[in-house]
Design a protein around this nucleic acid. Sequence first.
RNA 1: GCCAACGUAGCUCAGUGGCAGAGCAGCGGUUUCGUAAACCGCAGGUCGUGGGUUCAAAUCCCACCGUUGGCUCCA
Length: 585
Amino acid sequence: MAQIRKKSRRVDPELLDLRQRIRHSASHLMADAVTRLFPEAKLGIGPPTDEGFYYDLDVSRPFTPEDLEKVTQIMRDTIAKDLPFVLKEHEREDIKQLCHDQPYKLELIDEIPEDEPLTTYTHDAFTDLCQGPHVASTGKIPAFKLLSVAGAYWRGSEDRPMLQRIYGTAFESQAALDEYLHQIEEAEKRDHRRLGRELGLFLFDPIAPASPFFLPKGAILYHLLMEYVRGLYRRYGYQEVITPQIFSTDLWKRSGHYDNYLESMFFIHADDREFGVKPMNCPAHALMYSSQLHSYRDLPLRIADFGRLHRYERSGVTHGLTRVRSFSQDDAHIFCTPDQISEEVQGFIAMLQESYSTFGFDEPLVMLSLRPDKRIGSDEIWDRAETALKDVLDRSGLDYEVKPGEGAFYGPKIDFFVPDAIGREWQLGTIQLDFSLPERFDLEYIAEDGSQQRPVVLHRAMLGTIERFIGVLIEHYGGAFPLWLAPVQAVVIPIADRHLGYAEEVKEKLVQQGFRVEVDARNERMNLKIREAQLQKVPYMLVVGDREAEGGTASVRSRDAGDMGALPVTEVIRVFGEESKVRGR
RNA sequence: GCCAACGUAGCUCAGUGGCAGAGCAGCGGUUUCGUAAACCGCAGGUCGUGGGUUCAAAUCCCACCGUUGGCUCCA
């Protein structure tokens, strides 16, 4: 099953370069066309992207679908004329003159360093400040399509004006464009929101915005993931705890959340006191840690918590299961000495790699974020922490990107991203060093020499938010979960009413072995039951009729491989047992 | 939060000022069937919520709620 990724990391570089030129050129044609329809339009930027191109324009009114059709027509005409793209280098003053009525362009020009050449590309009567490259002429744009309109802040900043952005895409051939559009359509069928409804996994209701209700089948999946993580915790030396849901505001003031996180928290008032619903577990764990005296011999202490968290995410950013307001994480905090950082990070990455490969997320995008300008903690401890993170990553064999200045003020971090069906990358795992929390909660341990020392805290989540992980996982598998994760592993299908008793027997034998099996006892024909089990993506269908009842067998039909013939029920149990051991198929 | 679109039966959607519709799902019956949709019938709605315009509103206007796409790709 082909997985669609936005970052098509395997496309040949020449083709990528060609696409960039085509898309960049198409974006010029689009701006040209818009300018003809809206002569007063002010141009923002119009770059190619991984999937297409866009142009940001400041126009008097939002674009309508009819506008897009007209723009498309003008672009077609320009392509038909096959006009050359002409590159020209300019003096700074000349180009400012040229762009005198284009405030956004002037802003861009002022930011270009003095020693860089200022160039424009011209086709027909349209000239745009641009460093290229482009295709040779407008006729060399073989296939394009305008896709959507959206508002976009100038330079991505909410303080700047909002421009109208038109998205489009362009390819080296009509066939490639059609293939892309087809892929998008296919990806929509894997959308976890759609599959969640169709497969009866979860639902949303406006009564609790952005907060999923997990139906029985979804809850099975949820708990299977938790059990899987618990299994890893046992092997990797974690202890699980359960902590309260709401805490007096005093705790949030102490942790710093009240100052920095206020708008993202829910509050409750009772007995004239204010309580905050926890948006994260760390303060509770810090409290637990400080409730006892700790020896260096106790460390590292790894405290895991699946506690439910609530965050008031802004209305525009919530999205299906991948960005919700009520969720839990496979969250844990590691309290350790500075000397133990490296080993702890290494242990975490080993566990993360093991789990990701189980689910087939073999190439997560990894980002290492280093010290920002505004930070706490000595340079020495930052040096030590950053070096530890880098060393571990280098040894892990994972590719990673370094993001200088992107770390949190309280410590550096590594984030792990995995794409959804349409290639949007979602952050799942994370490991963050924290030099702040131990200060705020005055955490200590007694060192070998009897002195009081401050531990380091590592915040870490592997699957991350379970809700989000399920969303990404549904899209990853297209809803067809491997046997060990399938909410219903097999449906027993009696051919006629008289086979119901035997069907129940078969089911019971499998259920006794711990498998999740149902009987489809409805008064419907076998064909319909097979069709529906197939659409529900149930891994196995066990058809039973006279022949099976007589021989103590079941005719096995696999979701993926079709009819596998009759097997004794004991053999079915063996096959299922083998297959459920193979996680991450 | 901001820009835009959308909200009609459980689901997918039609209905643009004059009696609220279809397919699927559901329910009842007939049928007892061998690997992706049997047949007949029945029921199902505060047209997201509130207000306004009008003789008349699902339809037009306003507000609110919710959902979707975008607001990170830098001349």
